[in-house]
Design a protein around this nucleic acid. Structure first.
Length: 283
DNA sequence: GTCCAGGATCGGA
DNA sequence: TCCGATCATGGA
């Protein structure tokens, strides 16, 4: 299956390597391969087009609408960049750097498990663990890749099985959270109808989900809330450098959040991602 | 050997 | 409400 869109809708590297996703890998020819929703996809740029080629048990129309949704193609990121770039010179630089960035609408369960895995961990290792998790528990697709495990599939894993993937102390969190979601089938669907505050609290009731992970789930899944501000070491670092000019250990999350609200308002989640990506690539 | 990574949880002040 | 200790793992 194949689908083409205009080439200026996004840049591959800015989308896949900004830290929001863990299942996309760059090939030698500069294209990327990844899997979402039982779709195994290759994405490349050629002659001013973005070309999606993949394997999926869908008709053409469904295939296209899955891509439009996942890559958030209906949102106008150019207008977002315009709004943020006039905030100050910092955002002008960061949005220019990450010009081709988009926030994916990733599967909610996958995003929850992935970001529980991310706690006190680094991105290459997170990717490795999730890869192994998919290989072991996810359904194999026609081309030999694996889908992310469903709730049912992952709930078959025992704690020690999860530990064997390299999850460390996060094994219990994933075990308990998966079982809770399995035993409460209305939990995930109900999140879509909540305002952001309620939704965050509901997510934080899950084992292994604290404030930072909850914000990432809200921002990077198909819940897609922009009015959140995930704070990790990099965001703390960049916010300190740009807006506080003080010892970063002294800054409370409250202070950073208040500053983000003040500066970026309802687009603070997106602003956070431009800043994170810019600061991290600069290192 | 130490330090670090898209932190959360727990117990105690 | 807010601290500090603790929690696995692997790469630098």
């Amino acid at each position: 299956m194949r689908y083409e869109v205009q080439g200026d809708l996004f840049e591959l590297q800015d989308v896949f390597d900004n830290g929001q996703c863990f299942r996309w890998n760059r090939n030698e020819d500069g294209s990327y391969n990844g899997v979402f929703h039982n779709i195994s996809l290759n994405v490349k740029k050629s002659e001013g087009k973005i070309i999606f080629e993949g394997i999926a048990k869908l008709n053409q129309k469904e295939f296209e609408s899955e891509i439009v949704k996942y890559f958030d193609l209906e949102r106008d990121y150019e207008s977002y960049r315009d709004k943020l770039s006039i905030v100050d010179d910092n955002l002008k630089v960061a949005t220019e750097f990450g010009k081709g960035l988009r926030l994916l609408n990733q599967d909610l369960f996958e995003t929850i498990i992935s970001y529980i895995t991310s706690a006190n961990n680094n991105i290459p290792r997170i990717k490795g663990i999730i890869h192994k998790m998919c290989e072991k528990y996810g359904k194999e697709l026609e081309d030999g890749t694996h889908a992310f495990p469903t709730i049912e599939e992952l709930s078959k894993a025992e704690v020690e099985d999860l530990r064997a993937l390299g999850l460390g102390f996060r094994d219990k969190y994933i075990y308990k959270t998966t079982r809770y979601i399995k035993e409460n089938p209305t939990f995930l669907p109900s999140l879509y109808n909540m305002d952001t505050e309620k939704c965050r609290k509901a997510l934080e009731s899950l084992e292994g989900v604290g404030p930072k992970v909850a914000d990432c789930i809200l921002l990077f899944s198909d819940l897609k809330r922009m009015d959140v501000f995930p704070i990790d070491v990099w965001v703390r670092r960049v916010m300190n450098e740009l807006y506080f000019h003080t010892e970063e250990v002294k800054l409370s999350k409250k202070e950073i959040r208040n500053m983000a609200e003040l500066k970026f308002g309802e687009l603070q989640g997106l602003a956070q991602q431009y800043l994170f990506y810019w600061r991290r690539e600069k290192e």
